[in-house]
Write a protein that binds this DNA or RNA. Structure first.
Lengths: 101, 101
DNA sequence: CAGGATCCGCGTGGATACTG
DNA sequence: CAGTATCCACGCGGATCCTG
């Protein structure tokens, strides 16, 4: 359910109860295409991890945030961030390597 | 670094300081091919997550375990397990869905 | 603005056979 | 036992164009 190149990246942006618009996410994640963004969001919505809030108005406005079940992922995401931080704190390794992924 | 279909599955088996042989992992992970197993192990070895211990003898014996840096992933893996467990504890949803992945 | 629809390359991953 | 070598399908993900 968390596989794929973008899932975790998206989740990290929704981390901590953030509510973001489609375009916000698009701008926040350089390199992602609209197709991938919507595709991954839809899958996670289907899996009950993120919820989609449509505001009926023009221009359209759609927001995304974590569901309650998605919020439960926060400790795990946090642990992953801690892990990545440890990596950078390590000696020789180049710091970019941990970020690049 | 954790992407791909098998990385996490393999890590879950090396969880808690387990030291396993190649064939142990192969048997423990139904459906994985030798190619994928060795490929993913090599990548994680290169990333410094798992370490490869070769015992020079016949028949060959090679063991795999987490490096110190790999051990640092345990809290994160644990959080993910907790997350998955919460899923199953939830009402309506079919329990298989959380496992299937 | 928030997508939908298409086309397409290329890498991931599966199956099988072979080896030191 | 612990890999290596090869072939190949499929689908992920990128690019581009279109729409309510």
């Amino acid at each position: 359910m968390l596989e794929g190149r973008w899932k975790l990246v998206i989740l990290f942006h929704l981390f901590g109860g953030q509510v973001l618009r489609f375009s916000d996410l698009e701008r926040a994640i350089p390199g992602i295409s609209q197709k991938m963004l919507i595709q991954q969001l839809r899958q996670m919505e289907k899996d009950g991890i993120v919820s989609r809030i449509v505001h009926h108005q023009v221009p359209p406005k759609v927001e995304y945030c974590l569901t309650q079940w998605g919020q439960a992922l926060c400790p795990a995401l946090d642990a992953l961030l801690t892990w990545a931080a440890q990596r950078e704190a390590m000696d020789g390794g180049n710091p970019a390597a941990a970020v690049r992924n």
